[in-house]
């Protein structure tokens, strides 16, 4: 697993300071969406090989949620941005 994360607020930190909170690429379905769509959103997860987007919570640091893009094979970290910034860019 990626062992060093460059937090946009705190700098380079070991992974022990973070908690991984799951897939960040999911899009929340509309409130009126079908039960199947909601079931998939809440429970069904892929176990991807390669690049993934994940929510990382910097529990022992700035306590902010980050969106970390990393590779599950090579352990390379491509980017780590604040969750607010990521959400703002996704809306655009």
């Amino acid at each position: 697993m990626a062992s060093l994360i460059t937090c946009p607020h705190c700098g380079v930190r070991p992974k022990e300071e973070f908690a991984i909170r799951g897939d960040a690429s999911l899009i929340r379905p509309a409130p009126t969406a079908s039960d199947e769509a909601w079931h998939d959103y809440v429970y069904v997860r892929a176990n991807p090989r390669g690049r993934t987007l994940e929510h990382w919570h910097h529990v022992a640091g700035c306590r902010r949620f980050l969106v970390v893009e990393r590779d599950t094979v090579t352990h390379e970290v491509y980017s780590a941005v604040d969750g607010v910034v990521a959400a703002r860019e996704a809306q655009r």
């Binding site: 705190c10 700098g11 380079v12 930190r13 070991p14 022990e16 300071e17 022992a60 640091g61 306590r63």
Partner: peptide, 19 residues
């Protein structure tokens, strides 16, 4: 502590939350 404490990296007056 998992941060770089070298004077060049952790300057005088610097502060941060850390494990």
């Amino acid at each position: 502590v998992g941060v770089d404490l070298h004077p060049g990296a952790f300057a005088l007056g610097g502060s941060t939350n850390v494990l």
